[in-house]
Design a binder for these strands. Structure first.
Length: 318
DNA sequence: TCGTGTCAAGATCTT
DNA sequence: AAGATCTTGACACGA
């Protein structure tokens, strides 16, 4: 099996390289002239997009082909304070360059709208805000020229004291999504409410790929062994290369929290399971607080381990 | 210059 | 019913 590794949102080793720069609404509104407010946002976007391209160049230098772009590239994009602002046209060239660079270098980009995006909320206003946020994400990927192989990761959402109707709401709203959004969505198991088995069942019904979060599975399950789930989880990807999320717990007391780096034994345990039940290349998104540094550290630790062949700087054969 | 509280957004647990 | 917590990087403010 060939396995590529990637990381999330920003590279800590790039100095002054954040693509997450932002401003709060309160501070934005302190700027007296409305035109000046927009210009403040434009300066932030310009810097974020510049830094996003720098991150991709850094990734290329380190042979990293799997990366999740931050949701904060355009600050306050869906907030009423910026209503009517056509940032897609203004930054068309920059976005196109970012996507072009990714495509030219065989990079797999994704995004992960944050936990305020809920397709199963009973509140109409939460659903409409979620749609707006999903549209923002899909439009950004479109503007980058990336087809629907560039995915949007979603969780199922809240339990609302009654799981079955909550799942029905998710399914109903999912089916109503515009195709340009729906075709990008992949669904992830979470650490409290919807187990890997729950999400697998859902993904089969919706014909959507499932992104397994291995750490979340150990936080939330009903005793199902991963080895029983993994073949079907990978099957939800059909001809696409499966991707999964991996992290180590911070410590026993904060088991749900992400550690700075990935524990190599945690990974080896998973690789053994995968080797036993699937025979397929896949990608692993590392969700470690030390981001790119955690990836580099993991690759160092994998060197010399029996059965692992290092391929370049961010991939292995196992 | 450094430390701390706050920030667009929701859900859920605690009091 | 209201408040704290989750999670997170960036920023504004005050010491």
């Amino acid at each position: 099996m060939r396995i590529r590794f990637g990381y999330v949102a920003m590279a800590l080793d790039i100095i002054e390289g954040s693509p997450n720069k932002t401003v709060t609404v309160a501070n934005l509104l302190k700027v007296p002239q409305e035109a000046d407010r927009l210009n403040r946002l434009r300066r932030l976007v310009k810097k974020n997009l510049e830094n996003q391209l720098r991150v991709l160049k850094y990734n290329k230098a380190h042979e990293i082909e799997v990366f999740r772009v931050t949701s904060k590239l355009i600050p306050l994009a869906t907030h009423p304070a910026t209503a009517g602002w056509d940032y897609l046209s203004e930054f068309h060239n920059e976005l196109d360059e970012i996507g072009g660079y990714a495509k030219d270098n065989n990079m797999r980009l994704s995004a992960h709208p944050d936990h305020f995006v809920l397709l199963n909320s009973p509140k109409a206003e939460v659903i409409s805000a979620s749609l707006k946020d999903l549209e923002y994400h899909a439009d950004l990927l479109d503007a980058m020229g990336l087809n629907d192989s560039a995915k949007l990761v979603l969780h199922v959402g809240g339990l609302y004291k009654d799981k079955e109707p909550a799942l029905v709401r998710f399914k109903d709203n999912f089916k109503l999504l515009p195709a340009k959004i729906r075709n990008r969505i992949i669904i992830e198991n979470d650490d409290r409410s919807y187990s890997a088995a729950d999400v697998l069942k859902l993904c089969k019904e919706l014909n959507a790929p499932m992104v397994l979060d291995v750490h979340h599975h150990y936080c939330c399950n009903n005793g199902e062994p991963l080895i029983d789930l993994l073949p079907d989880i990978f099957d939800t990807w059909q001809v696409m290369q499966p991707k999964l999320h991996f992290s180590s717990p911070k410590d026993a007391k904060n088991f749900r929290a992400h550690a700075d780096c990935v524990n190599v034994d945690d990974l080896l345990n998973f690789l053994r399971i995968a080797k036993d039940c699937v025979n397929r290349d896949f990608d692993i998104m590392l969700e470690a607080k030390q981001k790119d540094r955690a990836l580099h550290a993991l690759m160092q630790q994998l060197k010399g381990i029996q059965g692992i062949k290092i391929v370049g700087q961010a991939a292995i054969e196992y």
